[in-house]
Design a protein around this nucleic acid. Structure first.
Lengths: 226, 226
DNA sequence: TGGATTATCGTCAGAATGACGAGAAAAAAG
DNA sequence: CTTTTTTCTCGTCATTCTGACGATAATCCA
C-alpha cells in the first residue's frame, strides 16, 4: 500500500497581557518561504517526537520558559493542500497562555521576535486564521475555566485577574461584582495571606490559583456572538 | 533542509443516540495492523485533499450520508511516535454527531461496521483515548451549543431533545424544567406548527433547530467534573 | 367509559447576577 | 499634618434563572 507523504509542523499562538492589551508572540521569518514576513513561531516535529513534546520544545526555544508556568493546549490542525509552497505540510497549532515576560529572543530561522497587540496583522501562511481561532479559544476558555490565572504571576490581586478578563474580552467588568464572583466561585482562587505594598490605593490581598478545573457557575461574556 | 516524513490519517468519532443510549460507529479491521480488532473508522488523507474534506469523504463512505444533516467538527490530533507500527502516522480526529441511521455498511479495509454502546471497548491503536476525548467534547458541547439537535431528525419533540441530553450525559433531567428551558432559550428551537400523531400520551409539538450558534444562558450539567 | 401516559403550563423558594452605595486603607497633594 | 485621591472590599436591592413539584390537557389503550 502507498499513501501520500506529509511534513508535520507545530505552530504556537502564544498570548499574554501587556499594558492592559492582549498580545501575541510573533517572529519575523529569516528563511523562505515568506522571508521577512511576520508569522507565528513554530517548526517541524522531529522524527521521534510526540506532538505535545514538539510544542513544549518550541515554546521553550522561543521564550526561554520551560517550567510549569502558564498553560499549553492543542488548538487544532490545519492542512489545506496549498497552505505551504514547499509541499504538503500539516501544522498542529497549540495555544499558550503566559504571564507577561521580557521580550523574547529570536530563535533559529527567525530574524526577530516581538510581542504584538492583536489586530489586523497580515501574517504569513494561514496564520491569521490560526491566530483568530486561538484568540476565540482563549476568550471562550476564560468563561468556563480558571485559566485567566495563567496570564498572571504566581501571586496576583483580584484586580489583576479582572484586567486579564478585560484585556482578553475587550469589555469592562464591574470591579465589585467581579470581586464577589472570583472570591465566591469554589476553587478559582485561594488567598495567600499576603498583600500588595507601595501601590496607590488601599492594599489588595494576594491570591494564587485554586485547584478547580472548571468554573461552576461560569463567568459569561455579555455577547458571546457579537 | 530535511525534515521527518509522516503519513496523515483522519479518524472519526461518529456518535448517535439509539434506544436511549449513546452509540459509536466502529469498524472491524480487515487489514494489518490490528487485523480483526475494532477501531474507529478512518483512512489516509489523499495527496491533494484538505483535512476537512478527507473527514467528510470518510464519513460519507462509512455512513452513506453526505448531506448537511448532523454535525462534523475537528476534535484533535494524535501523533505519539509509536502509535502505529507502520511508522510515523499522525491522525486528525473528527467528531460527528448524527441522527439515528440504519446500520452502516462496512467500507473497504473493514470486515464489519456496527453501532456500539459506549463503554470499556479496548479499541485498536490509541482509539480508546480518542473516543473518550470525543465523548467528553460532545458532553461539553451540549452545554453551550444547540448541537443536541444534530442527533435528531429534522423535526423533533422537546422530549426527544431531552432524551438526547439524558443519553449523552447519562443523567436524568426534569421534563418540565427542560421544556421551559428549551423553549425559552432564544434560537435553540423553533416551532413547526406540526404535532406528533399515533403515539401514546398527549400529542407533542414538533420543532426544528433554531439559528443560534451558542446557548445563552447555557444548560449546565450537574457535575461537570464528576 | 375510565385509566394510563405524556405534554404543557404554573407556582414558589433559593441562587446568581447586575447596578450601585459606602466604608476602609493606603499613597499623594497641599 | 490634614485633606484629597485612589483603589479595595463589603453590603444592599431588584431582577433573572434554576430546581422542585403541583395541576391540567390531550391523546391512546383496555
Amino acid at each position: 500500500m502507498s499513501y501520500p507523504v506529509f511534513a508535520v509542523t507545530v505552530d504556537l499562538v502564544v498570548l499574554t497581557v501587556r499594558d492592559g492589551e492582549l498580545n501575541v508572540l510573533l517572529v519575523q521569518r529569516g528563511i523562505e518561504p515568506h522571508l521577512g514576513r511576520w508569522a507565528l513561531p513554530g517548526g517541524f516535529v522531529l522524527a521521534d517526537e510526540d506532538l505535545d513534546a514538539a510544542a513544549k520544545r518550541e515554546l521553550a526555544e522561543e521564550t526561554g520558559l520551560d517550567g510549569p508556568a502558564g498553560h499549553l493546549e492543542q488548538l487544532g490542525s490545519y492542512g489545506a493542500p496549498d497552505r505551504d509552497p514547499r509541499g504538503r505540510v500539516v501544522t498542529v497549532a497549540y495555544l499558550a497562555l503566559l504571564p507577561d515576560l521580557p521580550t523574547p529572543t529570536a530563535g533559529t530561522d527567525a530574524a526577530a521576535a516581538a510581542w504584538t497587540p492583536i489586530g489586523k496583522l497580515g501574517l504569513a501562511f494561514d496564520h491569521d486564521r490560526i491566530l483568530a481561532d486561538g484568540i476565540e479559544r482563549a476568550r471562550s476558555k476564560l468563561e468556563y475555566t480558571p485559566l485567566a490565572a495563567a496570564f498572571c504571576p504566581p501571586e496576583f490581586t483580584i484586580a489583576a485577574l479582572r484586567q486579564v478578563y478585560e484585556a482578553v474580552w475587550g469589555e469592562e467588568l464591574d470591579p465589585r461584582n467581579f470581586h464577589r464572583k472570583a472570591t465566591s466561585t469554589p476553587g478559582f482562587v485561594e488567598s495567600t495571606g499576603h498583600s500588595t505594598e507601595g501601590e496607590p490605593g488601599r492594599p489588595a490581598r494576594l491570591y494564587r490559583r485554586g485547584d478547580a478545573v472548571l468554573l461552576n457557575p461560569p463567568i459569561l461574556r455579555r455577547k458571546p456572538n457579537g
